[in-house]
């Protein structure tokens, strides 16, 4: 068999496409590993992330004092004029938690009125909207498939 026939015999079956694609991904990742010495981390990050173990809001601490403007980096500060005003705000309850323990940062960030990350909700707010839309579409498909056999 010629090579074209061999290749087309594999590609004509759509059940093989996932395997072919996975091989392609592995191939590109091998190229990536081979060229890894040429790639270097850029220290001047637009969205910096640091972990301060002394902070009660660790690892979600974005700095700043409540009711004062915090320093939040943005690519285009002219597009988000009110950046930095809410990132340090905590409700009285979460402020109480943060005064008393160093280990409840995740609890504070995950309950209503906790830390509002302005990179997520202000400068990159559109991304957050699309992420939730993807989730809702996935739910809509699952719901449709699950309830398809019900009689109306």
């Amino acid at each position: 068999m010629s090579i074209i026939r061999k290749v087309s015999k594999i590609l004509q079956n759509q059940n093989n496409l996932v395997r072919v694609y996975s091989l392609l991904v592995i191939f590109v990742i091998i190229i990536g590993i081979a060229t890894l010495p040429l790639i270097s981390y850029n220290e001047n990050q637009l969205y910096p992330k640091s972990v301060d173990m002394k902070s009660p809001l660790n690892p979600y601490d974005r700095g700043g004092e409540p009711f004062e403007k915090a320093e939040v980096k943005a690519q285009y500060p002219e597009n988000s004029r009110y950046l930095g005003y809410v990132t340090a705000y905590l409700t009285p309850f979460s402020l109480f938690i943060s005064y008393n323990t160093l280990y409840a940062g995740t609890t504070i960030v995950s309950h209503p009125g906790g830390i509002i990350d302005e990179i997520l909700y202000n400068t990159r707010g559109l991304d957050t909207i699309i992420e939730t839309s993807i989730l809702f579409i996935a739910f809509a498909i699952a719901m449709f498939l699950f309830r398809r056999n019900e009689k109306e």
Binding site: V18, Y21, S22, V28, I39, S40
Partner: peptide
């Protein structure tokens, strides 16, 4: 399955871009 596997290189590409260029 293919679309779910494809999200790996897709987001890995974006992650490498932000790590190497910072933006």
């Amino acid at each position: 399955i293919l679309a779910m596997v494809g999200t790996l290189p897709l987001f890995a590409g974006a992650a490498i871009i932000v790590a190497t260029t910072g933006t």
